[in-house]
Design a protein around this nucleic acid. Sequence first.
DNA 1: ATGGCGATTATGTATATACATATTGGAACG
DNA 2: CGTTCCAATATGTATATACATAATCGCCAT
Lengths: 248, 248
Amino acid sequence: MSLAETDETEAGESISLHQRILSDIQDKILSGAWPPGYRIPFEHELTAQYNCSRMTVNKALSQLAKAGLIERRRRSGSFVRQPQSQAAVLELHDIRIEVEALGLPYRYERLERLKRRSNAEDRAILGLSVPGSVLWLEGLHFAGKRPFALEQRVINLSAVAEAADEEFSEIAPGPWLIGRVPWSEAEHRIRAMAADHHVAETLDIDPGSPCLVVERRTWSADHPVTHVRFIYPAESHTLVARFTPSQG
Amino acid sequence: MSLAETDETEAGESISLHQRILSDIQDKILSGAWPPGYRIPFEHELTAQYNCSRMTVNKALSQLAKAGLIERRRRSGSFVRQPQSQAAVLELHDIRIEVEALGLPYRYERLERLKRRSNAEDRAILGLSVPGSVLWLEGLHFAGKRPFALEQRVINLSAVAEAADEEFSEIAPGPWLIGRVPWSEAEHRIRAMAADHHVAETLDIDPGSPCLVVERRTWSADHPVTHVRFIYPAESHTLVARFTPSQG
DNA sequence: ATGGCGATTATGTATATACATATTGGAACG
DNA sequence: CGTTCCAATATGTATATACATAATCGCCAT
């Protein structure tokens, strides 16, 4: 395996050395040249190969380790890791963006807004242990004239008091919350569901027809902020997740 | 060995300094104390605050930048970033693992195996431009006695020639492929679908009832390897994706 | 005022060095 | 023969230093 150029006489050498080392190794792994379990060269070997200091090599290897491509063991060396659990980066865009990406006019319409003390179900889905005020919202996202998604949301007013004063008649609660509440963690659940009567009527589809349901719970510093359920008619929506087994 | 964790101010320092700096800053951001746009202290200020070298501070800040929490600008400083793009890490486990995690016995049964020249549909879903041999497989994953998921797969034999000699009667093609073929990219599409006659009969559910469909295309070094479609009865399956906007 | 230009400044990258820590292989010893 | 212990070794973390690079501020001349 020969590296064509070793000198800095190359044109357009604008990337940093540790980055170059990183992507060299990454290529070896992703191409299969270095299979899982393979012991990659020791830091001091790479130091000699690239004619640089150990810190530079270390930076590249540390990043590869953090990205999960390799595993580092003291005294033993660094090893290519077994293919990772099938993890994919799932992009969940704002619904307005999704709709506009389809070239259709977007509109949001509030169906219901209810301030109430949390009932058992609210506490269960939010993960609350003590009672408190919550805001229940139901709204419909339109793509053109057709309903695109039904949104059902519970906001924990103990965490977001200002939401109590907001009508959400025109602006969807999602965009409103983003930027106002720093969130530290989110969990998504994705499943298929048959439309019940209410859903079918609202989305203008047949009862029993399949829907894609995306539920999201959001926390801010361990406090539950909101739980939202998006219900898409089956034809209207596909989630796409792309995965490249590398760092960003 | 026990960790005397009593002193959390200074002494019992089990984590590294740059990690401590990193999580301190991360906490400030996630708690909202440092809102988007806020200019976080300069490296030399943090150097003084933590009484350490600039390299240590730099390591923490660089990682925060790579994680997307802050943005660094030369001469200006580092700033808390605004847009947390809605991206989540979606874990797609091996079906055997999923089933066994439920405490049910797992079994795989091959329904069909067909070696053929690729037709137009095969080429479309695999993204092939030229004709070639493909292997079509259909199999059923069981959780206990109940069908758990139906798998429909096309393998590009130009990319994985050895697959032609494999019966896949007992072993599912997924685990077989993993480890044998290094893959460089994958794409998932997730949607809801009504069970057609064939699916309903195979999965032992009513025709028209909702199913969750997960389709995955896999490439290895720009060559399409396989396309697989998993069809889950709605009740049997929920995808879970968790996201923490921190470093890995 | 204003447009150019150099000084200043914060970050980006890399080096040489040092010591800590975990682990392994082998030597020493009972 | 087996157990203990030590030395060798690879990684983990941190320091002080150096120079590069980009962007900004303010001075100065027009």
